[in-house]
Amino acid sequence: MNEPVHLGRTASTGPDLQELLGLVARGDQEAFARVYDAVCGPVLGLVRAVLRDPAQSEEVTQEVLIEVWRSAARFQPARGSAMTWVLTLAHRRAVDRVRSAQAATDREHRAALLERTPAFDQVTEQVEARLEREQVRRCLRSLTELQRQSVTLAYYRGLAYREVAELLSVPLGTVKTRLRDGLIRLRDCLGVSA
C-alpha cells in the first residue's frame, strides 16, 4: 500500500516484517496492511502449490491472513523469522484443507457404499432357508406315516381337513387327531415354543 516492506531494516525503509507483526499484535491496522502487502504473494503461492485449486487457494490465503491478524501476538522471533512463521501458518492451513476435503470424500464414498449394500445378506438368507427346510424334512420323517400324510396334504398341498379325510378314506375326527398330534411332534422336534 504505502512503501515496500523489507525483511531487513534500514533507516529509510521503516519497520521490518517482525516489527510490523509486533504492531499488528497491538491492533495497528496500518501495520497489518503493510504485512498483508508483504506476505500475500508468498502465502498465495505456497497455498496454491499445496491445493492446486485457484479458488480454494484464494480462500485459504484469506483465512491465513485473518489468522495473522488475530494471532500476531503469538509470533516468537526467537523461533524463526516472521516470514517463516506466516508461511508455516499458510502451509498448515492448506494441509488442513486437503485433509478436510479427503475426509469429506471418504465420508461420501462410505455413504455411497452403504446405499448400495443390500439390507440383508442374500447368501446368509439362502443358507438359513435351506437349513430350515432340511430341519423340517428331518422332523417330518420322525412322524408316523399317517401323521406325515395328513400334515403334508393339509399344509403343503393346501387341502381342507374334509378333503384330507376323503382322500385318505378316514373319518374327519381321525384326520384332526393325526394333524394335532403330528403338529405337536413337529413343534417339539423344531424346538418351537408353544
Rank of each mutant, 00 (worst) to 15 (best):
A112E: 15
A104M: 08
L23C: 12
E67S: 15
P42D: 05
A90Y: 03
A31L: 03
E67G: 14
V86S: 06
L46N: 05
Q147V: 01
T117P: 01
T88Q: 13
R79K: 14
R79N: 12
V43D: 09
P42L: 00
Q62E: 11
R107M: 05
R70F: 04
V39S: 12
R92K: 12
L89M: 13
S100A: 13
A33K: 14
W85N: 08
C40V: 12
G41M: 00
V151P: 07
V39H: 09
D96I: 00
P118A: 07
D53V: 03
T144W: 03
L23W: 12
Q135M: 11
V136W: 10
M83Q: 13
E145R: 14
T105L: 08
A82R: 10
V50C: 05
L21Y: 08
E67W: 02
R26L: 02
R99Q: 05
L44E: 10
Q56T: 08
V95L: 07
F32D: 07
T152E: 13
V35E: 08
S150I: 00
Q149P: 06
R97W: 06
E125W: 07
A154Q: 12
A129Q: 14
L20A: 04
R34P: 01
Y156W: 12
Q149Y: 04
L113F: 02
L46R: 14
S100M: 04
P54S: 13
R130K: 10
A94G: 09
Q18N: 08
A55K: 11
A111P: 02
D28L: 00
S71V: 01
S100W: 05
T105V: 11
L89I: 07
R116I: 01
L140R: 14
S150C: 09
S71I: 01
G22Q: 06
L89G: 07
T144F: 05
R141W: 08
A112L: 14
D16G: 11
A25M: 05
A55N: 13
P54T: 04
A90S: 05
D121S: 03
A73M: 01
F32P: 06
Q147H: 01
V24E: 08
Y36E: 13
C139L: 02
A104S: 11
L153H: 06
L140V: 02
V35D: 10
P118F: 00
E58K: 03
R48A: 10
E19H: 14
R74V: 02
A94V: 00
E115W: 06
H109T: 15
E67I: 00
A104N: 10
Q126W: 04
V64P: 09
L113H: 11
D28I: 00
L87Q: 05
S142E: 13
Q126N: 04
T124V: 07
A104E: 15
E128T: 11
D106F: 03
M83H: 02
P118S: 06
R74T: 11
V24W: 04
A154V: 01
R52Y: 04
V86R: 09
E134Y: 07
S71P: 01
Q147R: 06
D37S: 14
L143R: 12
T88W: 01
R110K: 10
